[in-house]
């Protein structure tokens, strides 16, 4: 761009246009400079307000390692849950697209039920209500089943998040599959492929490019929603912050700190997401 303006004679841009181009370029620079300044001022304001509030930074620093140690759980929960959600969403999407009435109705109910109830309720359902179901089943003669239905906090949380996100992602995957031109299916069928082969070899590899960006968004949302497992006493980020804050009557410090940690994690993930998207866009040129 700049090179073009500097060597106008080479590409034959008339003089008036050159002035305009230069002005546009200058405006852009001024804008981005102003934007940076605004961000900077905003950051300064935030920091000063924290100082004015009289935050106990020494206290924060002291507990920082302990709180951060909880991010391991956060990542573990988010990672396992998103993996489960990916599997469920592919199955769910195929179910939603299925012509088999039983399969279709199960998939549709799954999506509707999960999307229609609060995640918080679902989390408690897996953790607190499931054992009761086990107990009831035990009453019907399924001895020993209650133990299977009584889940420790961590698996219960992973299941709750995975199943919930799986339902939302089902619709993403379904949309991705449906976005592939019908001509692709026809070409595959005309070739003699079965429905399964068509999906596996032709449709899915193309749909995955459409699906990956929204899924990485979901992963970022999952990092934050994983804080819900703190409700069951898993020692992840937010649970640690809340505990420590309460015990020392310094909740403000702890909450601000944990909020910043989440924020930093999400910014980091966004950075990777952009990388992935750029990488995929580059592959797109091949398409």
């Amino acid at each position: 761009m700049t090179a073009d303006i500097n060597q106008p004679e080479k590409i034959g841009i008339p003089k008036e246009a050159r002035t305009i181009l230069k002005r546009i370029e200058a405006d852009k620079t001024i804008y981005s400079r102003k934007l940076m300044i605004s961000f900077f001022v905003l950051a300064v304001l935030m920091v000063t307000s924290l100082i004015v509030l009289g935050l106990d930074f020494k206290f924060m620093l002291k507990w920082l390692p302990f709180i951060i140690a909880g991010s391991g759980y956060t990542f573990l929960v988010a990672f396992l849950a998103i993996s489960l959600a990916c599997v469920l969403s592919v199955i769910g999407a195929l179910g939603r697209l299925s012509r088999n009435p039983v399969i279709n109705s199960i998939a549709t109910t799954y999506v509707s039920l999960i999307r229609g109830t609060p995640l918080l309720v679902q989390v408690y359902m897996w953790y607190l209500a499931l054992p009761q179901i086990g107990k009831a089943l035990e009453g019907y003669g399924f001895t020993g089943i209650q133990a299977w239905f009584t889940l420790p906090a961590l698996p219960a949380g992973i299941l709750a998040l995975g199943v919930c996100y799986g339902a939302y992602m089902t619709e993403t995957v379904r949309a991705g599959i449906q976005s592939i031109n019908i001509g692709q299916t026809e070409a595959a069928k005309a070739m003699g492929m079965t429905g399964f082969q068509t999906m596996k070899r032709v449709i899915f590899p193309q749909a995955i490019r459409v699906i990956i960006p929204p899924v990485s968004n979901e992963f970022i949302a999952m990092i934050k929603d994983s804080s819900l497992v703190s409700l069951m006493g898993v020692w992840e980020l937010s649970y640690r912050a809340i505990k420590v804050g309460r015990r020392h009557f310094q909740s403000l410090e702890m909450l601000i700190m944990v909020a910043l940690i989440y924020w930093a994690m999400c910014i980091l993930l966004q950075y990777f997401q952009e990388k992935i998207e750029k990488h995929m866009a580059r592959g797109d040129r091949g398409i």
Binding site: N181, G183, Q184, E186, A187, A190, M191, I287
Partner: peptide, 15 residues
């Protein structure tokens, strides 16, 4: 289908 080849107006190559 295995015995029949088909060519479409829109080519429909796998991109």
């Amino acid at each position: 289908r295995k015995k029949t080849g088909m060519c479409f107006q829109a080519f429909n190559l796998f991109p």
